[in-house]
């Protein structure tokens, strides 16, 4: 299965987004949180992102979903074409769409495009 890493400035937001995502997509979906800086404060930690990538990497690729700003910049530096890919998508909606696709066995490109479709979802 494709793994997902939710990268947020906030450790709490990342952890809660993982909880919500796995609650909807299924517990077996590999989704990990990389939230906060090295000390757990607001910010971004490359160490935390790397640890999360290792946690969810089953060999089928990993999708990084950042919230904004330095999370995006740090995640971009970690991209490995075809292996670790960044999704430019809404954080919550993109994570859920990606997790549902990953749980259904989609390949990395399919998981990415499912996440990208979330950008056009309307709530009403």
């Amino acid at each position: 299965m494709v793994g997902l890493v939710l990268v947020s400035h906030s450790a709490g937001l990342a952890a809660a987004a993982v909880e919500l995502t796995r609650g909807i997509a299924g517990r077996e979906t590999p989704v990990a949180a990389a939230g906060g800086d090295d000390d757990g404060g607001l910010g971004v930690s490359m160490d935390r992102i790397e640890a999360a990538v290792r946690e969810v990497d089953q060999g089928d690729g990993v999708l990084l979903i950042p919230d904004l700003g330095s999370a995006v910049l740090t995640a971009r530096l970690m991209e490995q074409p075809g292996r670790v890919v960044l999704a430019d998508v809404p954080f919550v909606e993109g994570a859920i769409a990606a997790a549902v696709a990953a749980g259904g066995g989609a390949a990395l490109a399919g998981v990415l495009s499912a996440a990208e479709e979330a950008r056009t979802y309307r709530k009403l």
Binding site: G43, S70, T74, L77
Partner: peptide
């Protein structure tokens, strides 16, 4: 690795 904000990357 150590700045923690956008200026790091």
């Amino acid at each position: 690795r150590r700045v923690g904000g956008a200026s790091g990357p």
